[in-house]
Computed example of a mutant assay.
Amino acid sequence: MRVLLVEDEPDLDIAGTDPRGLDPHLPRIRRATRRLTDVVENVLTRGRLQAAGPDLRAVPLRLDQLVEQACEDSRTLRPARTW
């Protein structure tokens, strides 16, 4: 679950057209928004990990298989994209 998609910043883009001169502040606002999003995502991830209970443990895995599966998932989600 993602809380905020920072790439979609229509409110900040609209603020760029504000006659009050917010333009110089927008880069700082965007950075702060991204940092806050990261913090919220980290808190949610930590909560999910803690909710998983004591059964959660590290297991060895093969990186090539993980990458292969991630690529396959990406092709399934976005079949029109060329890699």
Rank of each mutant, 00 (worst) to 15 (best):
L66G: 03
T76G: 11
R35Q: 06
H25S: 11
D23P: 00
L49S: 01
L12C: 06
P60S: 03
V6R: 03
L61S: 08
L66F: 12
P60D: 02
A15H: 05
L4G: 00
D8A: 08
Q69N: 02
N42V: 04
E41A: 08
E7L: 09
T76M: 14
Q65C: 03
E72Q: 03
M1C: 06
L49M: 06
E7P: 06
L26K: 01
D23T: 15
P60M: 01
P60F: 00
L5F: 10
P79V: 13
G16R: 14
A51F: 09
P27D: 14
L49G: 01
V59K: 08
V40D: 01
E41S: 09
G16N: 09
T45Y: 04
T37P: 05
L56W: 02
R78S: 11
T17C: 11
L36Q: 14
T45G: 03
V40H: 03
R46P: 02
A32P: 00
D64L: 05
D55N: 08
L26E: 00
D55W: 04
M1T: 10
D11F: 15
D64E: 13
A32D: 06
R2K: 14
A58E: 12
T82R: 10
T37Q: 06
T17R: 15
L26N: 00
E7S: 12
D23M: 15
C71S: 11
L5I: 03
D73T: 06
T45I: 03
T37N: 11
R57P: 01
Q65G: 04
L36N: 13
L22T: 05
E68K: 04
E68G: 02
A58G: 07
A70I: 12
R46Q: 09
A32Q: 06
V67P: 00
P79I: 13
R2H: 12
D18K: 07
P27I: 10
G53N: 04
Q50Y: 04
D18N: 14
R2E: 08
P79N: 11
L44R: 03
V6G: 13
W83K: 01
R75A: 09
D55P: 02
L49W: 04
V39D: 03
E9R: 15
L77K: 08
R62T: 15
A52N: 05
R34N: 11
I14F: 11
P54S: 03
T33F: 08
P10Q: 10
D38T: 10
A70E: 10
D8L: 09
G16Y: 14
R35G: 01
P19R: 10
P60E: 01
L77G: 07
R20N: 07
L12I: 13
Q69K: 02
E72I: 00
D8G: 05
N42K: 10
G16D: 12
R2Q: 13
V43G: 01
M1K: 05
H25K: 13
I14S: 10
E68N: 02
D23E: 15
R28G: 15
V39A: 03
L5E: 10
L61H: 06
V59E: 14
E9M: 13
L63Q: 07
R46G: 07
E72L: 05
T37Y: 05
A15T: 06
A58V: 13
R28N: 13
L4R: 04
L44G: 04
L49F: 00
R28V: 10
R30L: 04
L49Q: 05
R62D: 15
P10S: 08
P24R: 13
D55G: 12
L22K: 06
E7W: 02
S74K: 05
L63W: 11
W83F: 12
L22D: 02
L22H: 08
